[in-house]
Structure formats: C-alpha cells, structure tokens
Simulated assay, not measured.
Amino acid sequence: MSASGDDIFCSDVEVEPLPGTAKQGDVYVLFEWPGPWSHDVLDGGTLGEELSAEIKAHLKKFGASLQLIRHPTREGRRIDDHHLYIVHTRIGLTEVKHVEGPEAILQLDLSGPGKNHAMARPTPLVLVCTHGKRDRCCAVKGRPLVSELEKIYPFNRGSDVVWETSHIKGHRFAATLLLMPWGYSFGRMNLEATEAMIADAMRGQYFVPGNRGRGTFSPVAQAAEVGVAAHLAAEGTRISYGQLEVVGEDVSGEKALVTLIDASTSATFEATMRRSAVSGVLSSCGEEPKEGAVWGVDKLERTSGA
C-alpha cells in the first residue's frame, strides 16, 4: 500500500485496534474560542505568541491540558463571553464559569476542584474533534457528525452537551470524541454509536464500542480496562464510568500484567497483556505507512469477588 498526496484518508485505514490509544491527561481547561484554530492551538497563531507562551507555562505547572471548543453553528459562535470549563477527570468533575477572554486562564488554580469560583455541572460534555488544520480527517468526518448531533442536542445556555474541539490525539481514528468528565476517548464513531454513547453517559454508564480508553491510565492499562468492561458487557453486566480501578501494572518487555478492581463489587481481575506489531499505520493523511505497536488482552481472569 502506498500513501502519496491525497489518495488515502488516514482514518480509512483500520489496521489498529482502538483500546490503548486514548489521549492521556488528568486536568483539562476547555476554553470557548469561536474563531479559527491554528495547527497547534498554542503555537501563537490562535491566541498570539506572548499569551500562548504564558498559558503554556501556566498549564505546565499543574500538568493540565488545553482544549479549545466552539459551537458548531454560526449563531452559536456569536458570543458575549467565553465558556471556560475545568475538568478533573480522575474524580469525574466538571466546573464551569464565564470569562471575558483567554487571559483568564492565567488566573486559574488547577491544583484541585473548588478553587476558581466556578459551578459544578452534572451533565457530561461530548467534544468532537473538528480540527481540520491539524488533519483533514477531523474536518471531513468530525464536522458532519457534530452538525447532526447539534440537531439532537440543541445548544441552549445551561444545556450544552456537544462541542467542537481542537486536536485530541488520534485523528487517524476520526471521527474522534472526548467524553468528559471522565476523560474517555472514542474513535471511528458514527451518529448511531455516538447517540447511544451519549444516552449511556447521561446515566454514567460505560460504553464499549469505539472506546479507546481513559486518559488517566497508561496505554496498557487503558487497553486492559476496556477489555474488562467488554468482558463484563458480554456477560450482560453494565458498569459505570470510574467503576474499574487499576491497582497494579507490571510491564516486562512485550508482556504486562494489569490488575483491576471493580469498586462496586470488589471483584478483582487480572489482565495478561501482550504488545504486538501492526503494519500499515497511517498517522496522518499523505504519510507513508509505518509499523506500530498495540497492547491487547492475552488472558483475562477474575481472581476474587462476585
């Protein structure tokens, strides 16, 4: 297979399994910016070089990530102030406030919740990557999806579920989504699957199809957690986001043992993992295929509990 010029969309090459590919991060700042986004939202082309450098340094102090978000309709991009969300994914909490401009990011204390005069919000947020300047797959597949979702979940003040977002890693899996407040990434999503995922998320229920993993975990632990969730779903057991806790991770070369506990039942699972090679990976449109590596579940055992 050859990838030259515009022949192949990287998101059409489905050689990689999704689990274990999620964007990693614990704390996110989601800032509403309705204008254009440059290739990297902090490269100076969007917010200016000086402010971008200051924001980057401030976020680094807290190990936080920035996502720019915007409403998918022209009407929704006419704003008087900016939504600013602070998401603590490890504890599954989103806080929201309205600010005058991006300079407000520099005043945030991101060391924990309850420090920024923001309100907690119970409703999940679904961020659909439409960052075409990063990779065109996100525009080609993300924008139609978010436009359809907006019709189902129309934007009203205080009722904001679906947003466009900047790059969330893995545009080769477009359409890609980030589900807050838990920090789960999803890939290769269509409208039907996304509707089902959102319906479950409204009840806090874990959705397996398209799930790339939780960003609070390492890639191998992401793959193990999705594997356990899929196993339980096949048995007819539904779980909630945050219900599976990774309590052990022993990696040795191409093998790993990941131990997880079901917090609601105290059941313990041991996932024996194996890393294997995958060929024909297109990380971006127009690039040559390359070799990659993925983690997969070799064996899964319930070692204790119900």
Rank of each mutant, 00 (worst) to 15 (best):
residue 65 S to A: 09
residue 212 R to P: 15
residue 239 I to Y: 03
residue 253 G to L: 06
residue 199 A to Q: 12
residue 215 G to F: 03
residue 21 T to G: 10
residue 55 I to L: 11
residue 275 R to H: 01
residue 8 I to V: 15
residue 234 A to G: 09
residue 195 E to N: 09
residue 36 P to D: 04
residue 245 E to K: 10
residue 203 R to A: 14
residue 187 G to Y: 01
residue 207 F to S: 15
residue 206 Y to I: 05
residue 97 K to N: 09
residue 200 D to N: 15
residue 16 E to C: 03
residue 130 T to G: 03
residue 41 V to Q: 06
residue 215 G to E: 04
residue 36 P to Q: 08
residue 177 L to E: 06
residue 262 D to G: 05
residue 76 G to M: 03
residue 180 M to R: 03
residue 173 F to S: 03
residue 189 M to L: 12
residue 277 A to K: 13
residue 298 D to W: 06
residue 258 V to L: 07
residue 269 F to K: 11
residue 41 V to P: 12
residue 117 H to V: 12
residue 246 V to Q: 06
residue 84 L to A: 05
residue 180 M to D: 07
residue 52 S to Q: 01
residue 200 D to P: 05
residue 217 F to L: 13
residue 113 P to A: 13
residue 197 M to Q: 04
residue 23 K to D: 11
residue 235 E to H: 08
residue 16 E to R: 00
residue 303 T to C: 13
residue 47 L to E: 01
residue 266 S to H: 14
residue 243 Q to T: 14
residue 278 V to P: 06
residue 131 H to P: 06
residue 62 F to E: 09
residue 120 A to G: 15
residue 178 L to N: 07
residue 148 E to T: 04
residue 16 E to S: 01
residue 66 L to V: 04
residue 50 E to H: 05
residue 186 F to M: 10
residue 82 H to N: 11
residue 256 A to D: 03
residue 233 A to S: 08
residue 17 P to R: 07
residue 137 C to Q: 00
residue 221 A to E: 11
residue 259 T to Q: 15
residue 187 G to F: 00
residue 256 A to C: 08
residue 13 V to N: 05
residue 26 D to C: 10
residue 234 A to N: 07
residue 5 G to W: 00
residue 137 C to M: 04
residue 289 P to H: 02
residue 30 L to D: 08
residue 224 A to V: 00
residue 109 D to W: 04
residue 84 L to M: 12
residue 59 L to E: 00
residue 106 L to G: 14
residue 152 I to M: 10
residue 84 L to V: 05
residue 283 S to N: 05
residue 29 V to N: 10
residue 27 V to Q: 06
residue 185 S to V: 06
residue 170 G to P: 11
residue 105 I to N: 05
residue 208 V to P: 12
residue 98 H to C: 09
residue 26 D to G: 11
residue 100 E to D: 13
residue 240 S to P: 09
residue 247 V to C: 08
residue 27 V to M: 10
residue 267 A to F: 01
residue 143 R to N: 13
residue 31 F to N: 03
residue 64 A to N: 02
residue 204 G to R: 08
residue 173 F to H: 04
residue 101 G to I: 06
residue 77 R to N: 10
residue 153 Y to H: 15
residue 49 E to M: 07
residue 202 M to Y: 02
residue 294 V to Q: 14
residue 86 I to L: 15
residue 168 I to G: 00
residue 90 R to C: 02
residue 169 K to Q: 10
residue 261 I to K: 02
residue 148 E to C: 08
residue 235 E to Y: 00
residue 115 K to G: 11
residue 138 C to H: 00
residue 293 A to M: 11
residue 131 H to Q: 07
residue 66 L to S: 07
residue 146 V to I: 08
residue 165 T to M: 00
residue 169 K to G: 05
residue 218 S to P: 02
residue 74 R to T: 13
residue 273 M to F: 11
residue 100 E to R: 15
residue 201 A to S: 13
residue 241 Y to C: 13
residue 84 L to Y: 01
residue 45 G to E: 12
residue 104 A to Y: 02
residue 21 T to P: 15
residue 79 I to F: 04
residue 192 E to F: 09
residue 183 G to E: 05
residue 279 S to Y: 07
residue 269 F to R: 12
residue 22 A to L: 12
residue 74 R to F: 11
residue 54 E to Q: 11
residue 117 H to I: 12
